[in-house]
Design a binder for these strands. Structure first.
Ligand SMILES: [Mn+2]
Ligand SMILES: [Mn+2]
Ligand SMILES: [Zn+2]
Ligand SMILES: [Zn+2]
Lengths: 149, 149
DNA sequence: TCCTATTTAGTAATAATTACTATTTACCAT
DNA sequence: ATGGTAAATAGTAATTATTACTAAATAGGA
């Protein structure tokens, strides 16, 4: 469901961000793809029409697109790999601020029924659920210096 | 549920891997922690008792621990960030071999009920579910050159 | 059209991970 | 127990993704 140029412009401007041809081109490349592209993918694609494009702009734009709510990053909530020796079925609560990871035991989540269609497409090895939010420590701190906007 | 030295040794040897003091020390540091430690965390901890320890060995050992099924990596199934402009509620099937990410629409997964206890601990912003396995292309290829063991 | 804060491009710096190689070591066969 | 050998380790270098910095360009309001 690709947004129109005017819709994207409106979204940017309502958030006080400038609407640039690079930003729109990157949005179109992302929204027009089914591949869940990487930064590098988007850079290569958009560079054809914008030869001076820099990686920096792609990173920057992806942050903006997320900020205005028309894109999202898939599953990289920590900045580095984290490990667990606990092989019992459980899930994780990830704090977006301090990167703390806490265990969550919840039987109802363990046995997620996959639709037969998915099972047909993929040989599923397992699944992970991560809830993300703010831990009790960070909840308080976030509320204190809450930025206006 | 920390495994004993003998249990760990057995696991390694059954998989044809050598049992070393570094490997056991790293396992103990990981299994003895509730912090879901990073590579760097484990390196710092274990280096106290094994001053010559190298980062490489930590990486290596974490792979081995995963291979023999007594540890796992949390939520880094892609090697780089991937993005999505599709803001409709949906989930993802991630191919472990070719890193392809396909969409999965499944109403029953969208509204995961969190236990009140978790809600109390965290201010939850959202959640992600990723199913991992092998896509139709890779299913075939994996079966072909299946290694004996 | 002009002004200015924002954005971009280009480059450098950082951080995590992977690759390489000489030395050491676990463990099997003797 | 000893020795041989393939595997593992330590140390270092290379690679890759991401972030930081700064001068030049530009979007959008006055
Ligand atoms: Mn855990
Ligand atoms: Mn998607
Ligand atoms: Zn926190
Ligand atoms: Zn695949």
């Amino acid at each position: 469901m690709q947004l129109t140029l005017e819709q994207v412009r409106k979204q940017f401007q309502e958030c006080g961000l400038k609407f640039t041809s690079q930003r729109y081109a990157i949005y179109r490349a992302l929204a027009g793809s089914k591949e869940h592209p990487s930064v590098e993918d988007l850079y290569s694609t958009v560079k054809k029409a914008h030869p001076t494009l820099s990686m920096n702009t792609v990173y920057n734009t992806l942050e903006s697109l997320q900020a205005i709510g028309i894109a999202s990053e898939i599953s990289l909530w920590h900045d580095k790999a984290r490990f667990d020796a606990n092989q019992a079925p459980h899930h994780h609560l990830v704090c977006l601020r301090c990167k703390k990871i806490e265990d969550l035991y919840d039987d109802t989540l363990d046995s997620l029924a996959l639709s037969p269609k998915a099972k047909q497409r993929y040989r599923i090895i397992g699944h992970r659920i991560e809830f993300h939010g703010y831990c009790s420590d960070c909840k308080a701190k976030i509320n204190k210096h809450k930025k206006r906007r």
